[in-house]
């Protein structure tokens, strides 16, 4: 039987942390650790989750957890896995929780190296679409049009000019044993993917959308709904990569309104009709490619 709310480990391994109310990233970390259990060793680079989890003496992880250098999440995971293996310890899972900046910008080469060596680690990227911990600066996973402190919205330039980097397919292009995308709006899907990843040997990568009420400009109780909506309107997709094949897990019958999704968030409120058309066009192009290259399941 697959895990769900009723069968999930009742223990909490990420508790009493200082994340903002309604934090999507902390929800992703909490759920992943409930699936992986006490024998997981968490590595957290600079980012929200290390900032809110380790305020000595307030230490909020119930399992072994360690802060790594910003760029070194994956290499520290490699070291932990190799060190424990050398001691003959096998019943553990080395898991990394890095943000979008710590994954797609700063930690990319360490991650790429770990996938190349096929180290037996699980890397989870909680993607809140900007450097939220330092006060909302653009990362390469910030979507087109989003207002951040380094891509402000003015009369001529309206927020971020560049589209979101396609991290999932970049990772998959390494020929990784398992990669997946997820969203905190679809937690059962995420639970299934973490559970599946924990049973696969080799490098695993899960990319989960984790809304940030502070950075996105949404009420604290909207985190889960907005994470659901980003999937329903087609701007994010739930997929897996396994055995050299892309699989689409969830295909909305009809997309919900992109404009409605965007206008709920203050980071997109400045967008013009034209910008929204651009976003819709790029979504349609993306889905054309998804329908062509991804198998439905």
């Amino acid at each position: 039987m697959s895990l769900n709310a009723k069968t999930l480990n009742e223990e909490e391994f990420f508790y009493g942390h200082k994340a903002c109310a309604g934090c999507g990233g902390s929800l992703a970390v909490r759920i992943a650790l409930k699936v992986l259990g006490e024998r997981s060793i968490a590595v957290l680079p600079a980012g929200c989750m290390s900032a809110v989890g380790f305020n000595f003496p307030q230490l909020c992880f119930g399992n072994n957890a360690i802060i790594s250098t910003f760029a070194g999440t994956a290499s520290m995971l490699t070291g932990i896995e190799a060190g424990l293996r050398a001691q003959g310890i096998t019943d553990f899972q080395a898991v990394g929780f890095a943000g979008d900046g710590g994954t797609a910008d700063i930690g990319l080469q360490a991650l790429s190296g770990a996938i190349d060596r096929n180290d037996d680690i699980l890397y989870i990227c909680y993607d809140n679409e900007a450097y939220m911990n330092t006060g909302i600066q653009k990362s390469s996973l910030t979507p087109f049009g989003a207002k951040t402190t380094t891509t402000p919205a003015g009369k001529n330039i309206r927020g971020n000019l560049r589209p979101k980097k396609n991290m999932f397919e970049i990772v998959a292009a390494h020929g990784i044993p398992y990669a997946a995308t997820a969203s905190v709006g679809y937690l059962n899907d995420f639970i299934k993917k973490v559970e599946k990843a924990s049973k696969i040997r080799g490098t695993k990568y899960i990319h989960i959308i984790a809304p940030c009420p502070t950075g996105w400009g949404i009420p604290t109780d909207e985190t889960v709904n907005i994470a659901k909506e980003v999937v329903d309107c087609g701007l994010w997709y739930l997929a897996e990569y396994e055995n050299g094949e892309y699989i689409l897990n969830h295909k909305p019958k009809e997309f919900s309104d992109v404009e409605e999704y965007l206008k709920k968030q203050s980071r997109f409120r400045h967008l013009t009709e034209e910008d929204i058309e651009t976003i819709k066009r790029s979504r349609d192009l993306k889905w054309e490619a998804l329908n062509k290259n991804f198998r439905n399941n």
Binding site: P57, L59, F61, G62
Partner: peptide
């Protein structure tokens, strides 16, 4: 290194 899960403050006042 320090003991895991060592909490000394509540978050109730944030509410």
């Amino acid at each position: 290194a320090y003991e895991a899960g060592y909490l000394v403050t509540k978050n109730a006042g944030w509410r």
